[in-house]
Design a binder for these strands. Structure first.
Lengths: 191, 191
DNA sequence: TCTATCTCCAACTAAACGTTTGGAGGCGGT
DNA sequence: ACCGCCTCCAAACGTTTAGTTGGAGATAGA
């Protein structure tokens, strides 16, 4: 087998996604990433310049491999609710993207690669708008923002759920999510 | 003026709340906290033991001085919506608590001082339950969790709002919040 | 005034951090 | 066989970090 420089890049990125998702930018350790990846520390600087470049690459990679996994299928109120639940379940199963997004919001403030992400988001907005037959784009935007925000946040801040829901019951969180989503989707489709 | 050891503690805590809220636990610098507070680094270890002790004390302090600032006034659907909007505005004006809560969720995972916080949360839950005349506690819990989660999250993750809502329009975020809250409160009061 | 306590200050330790460097060897194309 | 790129490894760079220490001055109460 010959050199596979792309594989090295991917191994580094995968390890970086895990590490950054778990500990954030300030908490992540370059050494741990290189150890997890099985590659050398020095390769990180060769391929990504520095820690920040690696973070941005990892975030973009996580977005790319995740956002396309969920779509609105069919039309009507239930189709959007199904989409929301699918998104919730997917985030639950693959928490890296949600966590990375929150780290980005807290540590960076501004989004990485905003224009491309905006395009993808608008595509999802249109899916929702079409499924519900909405005239107003803003309503669909609000829906998507609420769904994504709630889903991510319920996943990431177990501490709040722990405090409000009492014992640590993950099923209750999902029930909270579904209840809220059902209400806002119904309300939106009514308008 | 004589010694005022409590003032020293408070100055350190205030500076710590700012610093931790802004940069998180891993990102916060003890030296910056001491500089902001005007007190000596060494006082931190005298009063709080170590960085982690300071973080916990800061979080508890921020919770104490914030959570009691908002209550459900009156009864009916509108009273709960008003409460949510008040909470949203308060968080917007004082982002420290929301940010600290997210840092806690991301970096720690588990809540600091869960029992006391649970008690306070349950009090708020009862306010909501009473205002809407709900029989089921779980519905009121879901409401509070959704309100707090959405409010905090919309405040903290400007990156998501930026991507979905396009340009950076804070007013739109508030509209999203109110729209969602109205829907879920109405739905809950119907049940 | 004596004593105990609080505060500041500056220097220090020991470790960890991101990043760089140089060298040795593996591999593909020519 | 040669050359250039890729990879690994280990050591080192300089900086920054959390945390410690010892001393000097200020303050309160007795």
């Amino acid at each position: 087998m010959g050199w596979d420089t792309e594989a090295t890049r991917q191994k580094l990125l995968a390890a970086a996604i895990d590490e950054f998702a778990q500990r954030g930018f300030a908490g992540a350790r370059i050494q741990d990433i290189s150890k997890k990846s099985g590659c050398n520390r020095e390769r990180i600087y060769f391929y990504f310049g520095n820690k920040e470049g690696l973070f941005e690459a990892a975030l973009i990679q996580a977005l790319s491999t995740t956002l396309d996994s969920t779509s609105v299928i069919g039309s009507g109120v239930q189709s959007v609710i199904d989409f929301a639940v699918t998104y919730f379940d997917f985030s639950q199963a693959h928490p890296n993207l949600a966590r990375l997004t929150f780290w980005e919001g807290l540590e960076r403030g501004v989004a990485v690669g905003p224009t491309e992400r905006s395009l993808r988001a608008q595509a999802k907005v249109e899916e929702i708008r079409y499924a519900l037959g909405l005239n107003d784009v803003a309503v669909a935007q609000n829906l998507l923002l609420t769904i994504v925000t709630l889903s991510n946040s319920l996943l990431v801040t177990e501490n709040i759920a722990e405090v409000i829901l009492g014992a640590e019951q993950k099923e209750l969180r999902k029930a909270t999510f579904i209840q809220a989503v059902r209400a806002i989707v119904l309300e939106a489709s009514r308008a």
